[in-house]
Amino acid sequence: MSDPPLLALRGVSKRFGAVHALDDVELEIHTGEVVALLGDNGAGKSTLVKVIAGVDPADRGVMEWDGRAVQVKRPHDAQALGIATVYQDLALCENLDVVGNVFLGREVRRVGILDEVEMERRTLGLLAALSIRVPDVRLPVATLSGGQRQTVAISRSLLGEPRLLLLDEPTASLGVEQTAQVLDLVERLRDRGLGVLLISHNMGDVKAVADHAAVLRLGRNNGFFDVTTTSQEQIISSITGATSHARRPPRTGEAGP
């Protein structure tokens, strides 16, 4: 491949005390590609997302953006590159309304004063474009249901034209219809040329939208698969550890064991 990947992680490691949450992890995401990140509970998926998003930077390792090494030490650094994140937990401020949450950290202002009208208008536009229904964008998110919050978190991440979207179990708290909507959205974003990293426990979701699947096991790479040519059983067995794959799967030798 001649184009450098949108995002590449090389030898990323992170420890929490004695726990090796991430150990020498490699990952590549190209534009217009959905990569599913799979792994058992505690495999390090959320930790990896937080490393990329600059929330909890790695201890070691290199992060490349468009082929250039970059430093992402703060959430702001990641946002500036065009990385948007939907976290598994603690994503929203309970007391702020939907508009406040969507624009938190990126408030629109006129002569130093918040431009509430403009922010509300753009929030409504964003929600409409994603066909998301929220009872009232001026209600505090504490009053919204789990699914509604998730949709708010997703629309929040799409503000400001990101190039890479990290979704940490975005459908976990959603119903059937909303899940389908989110997956639809993921496909549309991919077609628009975004790179997407999708964490999910649902193999159906992965099969439906992902191009590639990267498996983490106990903080290490445990396989990188082409979803269209790999059987579900194969992927599951590398998640559970029934099969062990090369620790650093070269991108060209994707097709499994």
Binding site: V55, P75, H76, A91, C93, L104, G105, R106
Partner: peptide, 8 residues
């Protein structure tokens, strides 16, 4: 934490 992740 949400505020921190939003870049505050």
């Amino acid at each position: 934490e949400a505020a921190r992740r939003a870049g505050v």
